[in-house]
Computed example of a mutant assay.
Amino acid sequence: MAEEASITASPPSPPPFVEVSCKISGKNYRFASGTKAEFAVALINRKLGLVNPRVIYIEAVKEGDEPISFGPHADLVDYGHNWKLNAVNDANHPGTENSDGVPLQIPRKIPSASSGPDDSKSERRSSSPEAKKGLSPVYIGKTLVAFVLMLVLGALFTTALENLPLLISLLNSSM
């Protein structure tokens, strides 16, 4: 009987979710185990709205241990007893100030929560600085020069093809 009780008494299974605490909002956000950190950061930032500072990454912390940072494509996991997942914002992130104490702008891509792997290329293209500027005078000038060069080359080839029979007759008569 004692053997059967020890077999059926298994260690408690980990919860099917992980909790990420956010100091900016003071709330805990729950995500399914295995959620990508990039999605969690984007969702927290979306719920925060236009509040500054923004969440830039998630890390697991335990007193007396070195924090573990989750990259954008890492799965969120619960490391067990006394480990907590924290959303790190750019205000409490070391290295976000210059020598004068002025906060630096950290360039970052905050994806939408609905973006999938197919949207990543188009999102990168549309977020380039050239796409945001619109039509610059340099771009229009280069386009016009290319158009003029195409017309000149077309005129040269047309003239050459029109005079090709005359060239062939001259070559035949000289032989």
Rank of each mutant, 00 (worst) to 15 (best):
F39G: 05
H73C: 13
L171G: 12
I110K: 04
L144C: 10
I24Y: 05
K121E: 10
K36V: 04
P11V: 03
K23R: 10
S10H: 12
N86Y: 09
R54G: 05
A74M: 08
E162C: 14
P137E: 06
D65L: 14
E66L: 14
Y139S: 15
N89T: 03
R46Q: 13
T159Y: 15
L85N: 01
Y139W: 12
G64M: 08
F17H: 08
G71H: 12
I44A: 01
N28F: 04
A5Q: 06
V138R: 12
L170T: 15
R108L: 04
D75C: 07
T158E: 14
N98F: 05
V41H: 00
V77Q: 09
L50P: 14
S21F: 11
N89A: 00
D100F: 03
N28A: 08
P137Q: 06
P12A: 01
G26H: 01
G141P: 07
K121L: 11
G116W: 02
V61P: 05
A146T: 08
G141I: 09
S120T: 13
P16W: 03
N86L: 09
P129F: 07
L156I: 06
S127V: 02
S6T: 06
E130F: 11
I44K: 04
V41L: 00
P72M: 06
D119N: 08
P165A: 00
V152I: 01
L76Q: 01
